[in-house]
Design a protein around this nucleic acid. Structure first.
Length: 432
RNA sequence: GGAGGCGUGGCCGAGUGGUCGAUGGCAGCGGUUUUGAAAACCGCCGUGGGGGUAACUCCACCAGGGGUUCGAAUCCCUUCGCCUCCGCCA
């Protein structure tokens, strides 16, 4: 959520910066401006009335002690009216505050001033490339044509429909080994604390990270019985439970930065992506991901993003996978993010780079929504932290990249050196 | 699922419906004392919001929501959470 005060006092600037995003927020902003003024007026009025009532009630206490019944009764009738007036104002204020917050929650984060301005992913800025495109003496195949029999979409469809997968044998094991490898690197080399969290969360958690209220259609929602007053949602990313670990907390001085890594399956309805990436593992309703999340001091935001990005890149480097880093332009930025780097891995069968990680700096946008604060100095005022997160990495897509970049002419796949001991094999072959 | 109990500030723990945002203790912070430390003593020590350059001031919050009342931490209803006993169970 944006700072309500800042928005109210800098409507033009906010309008200009949001205009760089995709989507139209002009109308919502006008609403916010009007509501902000109305809010201030109503608060002042309500509080003045309450102050009057409070003072009068103290006189009542004295009268009650004094025992002057007539004066007490007369005053009481008068005060009843005042009390009702206060209640009326409080009700109005409650409604207005709810509307104000609703509008604010619908606004995305302001793009960072340094972010490249653009409309779509074509305007993203390439930051760097790492490694070399693998050369093949044959036409490279798509991942779902390699190691035949290990990736089973027919049976997945029987169980759950489209966009699910079943992995057999060495593919299943590779998935597990990749997870283990990634968690190992982040905990042992990058100083992250591993955490295991629930995969079903309340709406409040999704509100905190920004998936709700706007993107409910992208989520899987569960319900206990016909009418569930508090439905739970399947997590679309571990970002949600992990970031919200510190919701409604004030972290004591010296406790930042905090760095957590978490494996989780991720569930996404992929509404609106019909016809996109329908083949193979690339876009699934359920996929595995290792996430890295950082809670940091606001002044450290920029360096922390570079650090986090480096941690995600390290996985690809240790696997020897060719990739590039792009900085998202303002039009391609996610709802909650102010600055994002995507890591795109090279897929020989498609002849292009595809997203395998997204590393974002949210400023205090999520911290404000989830109320995650820290105390910079003992006895000092709490302030919002900055949150960052990134995929480190999407496991299924890493499996795709390994398959494709390490493929052999006979359809087998050479195992990257870093994974050989854990996998217990140098080559993965078609199912016998 | 059945029966009972409990939810107060970082923690513990008071609080006959009327200056209670809340006594007290612990922890924390600052200071005095000390060669140093401990102890002792003094002071500070919740969050959000409104107004003000500021000093400061006002409002709200005693699990959440609703109600009674001139007035609610205190009474009533309700939801949630925790604990104990019984049942069921991976």
């Amino acid at each position: 959520m944006l700072d309500p005060r800042f928005v109210a006092e800098h409507l033009d600037e906010v309008q200009a910066r949001l205009a760089q995003r995709s989507g139209d927020f002009a109308a919502a902003l006008v609403q916010v401006g009007v509501l902000a003024q109305e809010r201030r007026r109503l608060i002042t009025e309500t509080e003045q009335l309450s102050a009057r009532r409070n003072a009068a009630n103290q006189e009542m206490a004295a009268l009650a002690k004094g025992g002057d019944k007539e004066a007490f009764a007369a005053r009481r009738d008068e005060l009843k009216l005042l009390s009702e007036k206060v209640k009326g104002h409080e009700d109005l204020l409650k409604v207005l505050l709810a509307r104000f917050e609703e509008q604010l929650l619908s606004l995305p984060n302001l793009p960072h001033p340094g972010a490249p301005v653009g409309k779509s992913e074509d305007d993203n800025r390439v930051v760097r490339e790492w490694g070399k495109k693998p050369e093949f003496a044959f036409t490279p195949r798509a991942h779902d044509e390699l190691c035949e029999g290990l990736l089973d979409f027919e049976r997945a469809s029987k169980l759950s429909g489209a966009r699910f997968s079943v992995l057999w044998g060495q593919a299943a094991k590779l998935e597990r080994v990749l997870i283990q490898f990634m968690l190992g690197v982040h905990t042992e080399q990058h100083g992250y604390t591993e955490v295991a969290v629930p995969y079903l969360v309340r709406a409040a958690a999704l509100l905190g990270t920004g998936q709700l209220p706007k993107f409910e259609k992208d989520l899987f929602k569960t319900a206990r019985g016909e009418e569930d007053p508090e439905p739970l949602y399947l997590v679309p990313t571990a970002e949600v439970p992990v970031t919200n670990l510190h919701a409604d907390e004030i972290l004591e001085p010296g406790s930042l930065p905090r760095a957590y890594t978490c494996f989780s399956p991720c569930f996404r309805s992929e509404a609106g992506s019909y016809g996109k990436d329908v083949r193979g593992l690339f876009r699934q309703h359920q996929f595995d991901k290792v996430e890295i999340v950082r809670f940091v001091e606001p002044s450290r935001g920029p360096e922390e993003l570079e650090l986090l990005l480096g941690h995600a890149e390290a996985i690809l480097q240790q696997l020897g996978l060719h990739y590039r880093v792009v900085e998202l332009c303002t039009g391609d930025l996610g709802f909650a993010s102010q600055k994002t780097y995507d890591i795109e891995v090279w897929l020989p069968s498609q002849g292009r780079y595809r997203e395998i990680s997204s590393c974002s700096w949210f400023g205090d946008f999520q911290a404000r929504r989830a109320s995650i604060r820290h105390r910079p100095v003992a006895q000092g005022k709490p302030e919002f932290v900055h949150t960052l997160n990134g995929s480190g990495l999407a496991v299924g897509r890493t499996l795709i990249a390994v398959f494709e970049q390490y493929q052999n002419e006979d359809g087998s796949v050479t195992v990257p050196a870093a994974l050989r001991p854990a996998l217990g094999a140098d080559v993965i072959r078609a199912r016998g």
